[in-house]
Computed example of a mutant assay.
Amino acid sequence: MDAEPAAAADEIPVVGLRERRRLETQRELADAALDLFEQHGVHGTTVDDIARRAGTSPRTFFRYFPTKEAAVFASADDSARVVHDAISAVRGGASIIQGIEMSWMRLLERFDTHPGEHDRALRVRRLVGAEPSLLALALRNELEQVDQLTDAAVDAAGADADVIAARAAISTLALVLRLTIDEWMRRAELNVPASAREIYIEIRRGVATVARDLENEPPLRP
């Protein structure tokens, strides 16, 4: 794991009018949920409140989100696309590490180049730290991604699949990504400019060093 991740391709998806409107409505609902959760807490906010703030109906809300908590994670579409891209890469012959990292690097580079998203990311992070239901959902989303990627890796490997090794590798990469976001947030709170992509590479190198140490050291016995 000590090689630097491959650079992401510069891909700009073409978005049609209907899709653009869908994304706008989704974002309006997400922003309304974020504002209300900050003001009244998750338990003090209803789906009706969110829909009213966004100028739409509860019925429309449920077209986009299964629960009020899910509305805060408007970037779930990005995460779903990342998982889809990684699965496609693995099924196309890439290693599981290559497939995941090519997708995640695109996500981090998009984040770095869109500073307008940084304030919202900080607000969501503060809410997740303060609201147990949001933290539980964030962790559940990560676990679901690990499950999906593990299934794809096992399917691609066929009869030679090592399920435990695949899950360990994917869980480790998920941890690196989470630590990257945590560190970026910590620096942002201190007003220290930082690149999420560069932080990922830095943490990845540290994890690779630990992995080599684990490989060279036998497990300790009690």
Rank of each mutant, 00 (worst) to 15 (best):
R81Q: 12
D31R: 15
A168V: 00
A32P: 00
E109C: 09
R197P: 01
I203Q: 02
R123M: 01
D35S: 04
A7W: 10
M1R: 00
A194Q: 03
G116H: 07
R120G: 00
A136I: 03
I164L: 09
F73T: 07
H43Q: 08
L122C: 10
R178Y: 08
P218Y: 00
A196V: 02
V90R: 15
A51D: 05
S75I: 14
T67V: 13
L139E: 04
T67K: 09
T180K: 08
L134H: 05
R187F: 00
V207K: 13
D112A: 14
A30V: 07
F37G: 02
P13H: 08
A156V: 12
L107Q: 13
A8L: 10
F111N: 08
A168F: 12
T45S: 07
D85W: 13
E11W: 12
A33I: 01
F65C: 10
I201Q: 12
S195I: 08
L190K: 05
P66F: 04
A33R: 09
A9T: 12
I164P: 08
R91G: 11
S195E: 02
G116S: 11
A6Y: 12
V207I: 12
R21K: 11
S171R: 11
D48C: 05
T67N: 15
E109D: 07
R221M: 02
D162M: 14
L139H: 06
K68T: 15
A136W: 11
L177Y: 06
L175G: 07
D31F: 07
A130E: 12
P115S: 09
E217F: 12
A161G: 11
A3T: 09
D31A: 14
S171D: 06
L135T: 10
V154Y: 10
R18F: 13
H40A: 15
R197I: 01
A74Q: 15
V176P: 05
T56F: 03
E19D: 02
G129Q: 06
A161S: 08
V72L: 15
K68A: 12
R204N: 09
Q39E: 15
A156M: 02
P222F: 09
L134T: 04
L107F: 15
D49Y: 05
E69V: 15
D155N: 06
H114D: 12
Q98A: 03
F62I: 08
H43C: 11
L173G: 14
R21S: 11
D85H: 14
V124S: 01
R120C: 01
R140F: 10
E28V: 14
H114A: 10
A169G: 07
P5W: 02
A153N: 05
D151Q: 01
A80D: 10
A74V: 14
V42Y: 02
L134Y: 11
R22V: 01
V83R: 08
V124N: 02
R27K: 09
R53N: 03
A70H: 11
E144Y: 08
A169Y: 04
L173A: 14
V83P: 09
A130F: 15
P58G: 09
A86Y: 02
A32F: 00
T209C: 10
A166G: 01
A211E: 15
A86I: 01
D77C: 03
R197M: 01
R110A: 14
S57Q: 05
D10K: 15
A194N: 05
Q26T: 13
E11D: 14
L190H: 04
T45F: 03
